[in-house]
């Protein structure tokens, strides 16, 4: 019987084969397979990161775009408001000026009218005195008569409804 010898031979051969294959075939190839696995994992992670970053960047850009749009709207609104305000101010100022001018003008006019009236009164008085002098032939003392004539004229004015 060759049982023991053959078994020992088989075991020895198998163990040597195991060691040799392990060293020359298994180790290099599994190493490469592990490396590949690591690389694939790394690449996938990298791609995932890159995608996330791109998405974040896009979101940021969109937000910025939205912001700038809002800013633009705000600026335009402010400008409009400012313009409106300025216009209103100018209008107000102009209106006021016009009113002042108008007031001044009417005051001037009233003043002038007053002056004209006063001067007309004087003229009428002088004229009346001159007429009276002519008529009476005697020079009245203008100064003595002045107040009397003024009263007359005033009475005339009141009767005519003139101030």
């Amino acid at each position: 019987m060759a049982t023991l010898g053959d078994t020992l031979f088989l075991v020895a051969t198998f163990v040597v084969l195991l060691i040799l294959v392990g060293h020359f075939a298994w180790k290099p190839v599994t190493k490469i397979m592990t490396e590949r696995q690591t690389k694939v994992d790394g690449d996938l992670d990298y791609a995932e990161n890159a995608r996330n970053e791109a998405q974040a960047l896009q979101a940021k850009r969109e937000a910025e775009l939205k912001n700038s749009r809002a800013d633009a709207v705000k600026i335009v609104n402010t400008a409009k408001e400012n313009g409106e305000k300025q216009r209103q101010q100018m209008l107000d100022a102009t209106t006021q000026e016009v009113a002042t001018l108008k007031q001044n003008a009417s005051a001037d006019i009233a003043q002038e009218r007053q002056d004209a009236l006063a001067s007309a009164k004087d003229d009428v008085a002088e004229l009346s005195v001159a007429i009276a002098t002519k008529i009476i032939g005697k020079e009245l003392n203008a100064a003595d008569q002045q107040s009397l004539i003024d009263d007359y004229i005033k009475g005339l004015g009141d009767a005519n409804g003139v101030d």
Binding site: G5, D6, F9
Partner: peptide, 9 residues
């Protein structure tokens, strides 16, 4: 002292 079957080996 061990017997070997050459065919097997």
């Amino acid at each position: 002292g061990l017997h070997f079957n050459l065919t097997n080996d």
